[in-house]
């Protein structure tokens, strides 16, 4: 579904992605973890061609999005919903208008249909009654959830999440995890999730990849990921006190295995 072939990206002298290859299956929840500044957001941006690789290619299905232009790029991007790290809400529009934006601009839906869809999505992210508020009146976590509602409002079949649960309280974080998991089960959505939250990585991930200094140093199913021999992965796990399987298991992983 999403395939990186030897992707390398330089920012000036620095190599921010170093020969990254991955293959994300349709209907998979692929989690990317790593230290701050490791290159997680940069990886995500390559998937939707906000960045172009210096070497290598990125494929969506059979099409190379890293080479696409104009209308082709537009068609490829139509399959995606994207949650940006900061939410990326338009400040002069209300919450409702922000979520409705893709529907207004890209579809012929009537106002009533749009309204219904927007309410439905805001409910999914546990945000009701803020339709008329402006983004500047919301907390960071609320903005993120509005961004999430906007990302899923077109019912895309690939969703990219840049830190969906950072800055959220534990209860809401788990609700977002469940939302991601439910979309996978019910709609066969392919998700790529960048997160710092190992707990959610382990509970929603079909596979987890750890990026360090622009390189994938480990890529495995959750059960194997926590047993990784890699020293960097170990230190990452230790820092979040995740040492044995029981801590995170919630019994919904048979589907992945």
């Amino acid at each position: 579904m999403i395939r990186f072939e030897h992707v390398t990206k330089y920012f000036g002298e620095r190599t921010v992605l170093d020969d990254v290859s991955l293959d994300i299956e349709p209907g998979e929840t692929f989690v990317i973890v790593g230290f701050s500044g490791a290159g997680k957001s940069v990886t995500l941006k390559h998937i939707i061609r906000l960045l172009t690789p210096d070497l290598g290619r990125v494929y969506i299905g059979a099409e190379a999005i890293s080479e696409a232009t104009g209308r082709d790029l537009e068609l490829l991007r139509e399959q995606f919903g994207v949650l940006f790290q900061g939410g990326a809400l338009l400040e002069w529009l209300s919450v409702g208008e922000n979520v409705a934006l893709p529907l207004r601009e890209r579809t012929a839906m009537t106002d009533a249909e749009i309204e219904r869809r927007v309410q439905e999505k805001l409910k999914l992210v546990n945000l009701e009654g803020v339709m008329d508020a402006h983004p500047s009146e919301l907390s960071g976590g609320m903005r993120k959830r509005v961004g999430l509602a906007r990302a899923i409002v077109m019912n895309p079949h690939i969703i990219l999440y840049d830190e969906p649960t950072s800055g959220l309280d534990p209860v809401t974080s788990r609700a977002i995890d469940q939302l991601i998991e439910r979309m996978r089960q019910e709609l066969n959505v392919t998700s790529v999730v960048v997160t710092h939250d190992l707990f959610s990585a382990l509970s929603i991930g079909g596979r987890i990849a750890m990026i360090s200094d622009g390189r994938i140093i480990e890529m495995a199913k959750p059960a194997d990921f926590i047993k990784s021999k890699n020293e960097v992965v170990k230190s990452f796990l230790d820092a979040q006190y995740i040492t044995k399987r029981g801590v995170w298991e919630r019994g919904n992983h048979e589907t992945h295995e």
Binding site: E74, E78, F80, V82, F84, A88, L89, P102, R106
Partner: peptide, 13 residues
């Protein structure tokens, strides 16, 4: 700076 333009382009707006 806040990636709003990028978000618009990704939504093909």
């Amino acid at each position: 700076v806040s990636e709003e333009i990028a978000a618009l382009e990704v939504m093909s707006i």
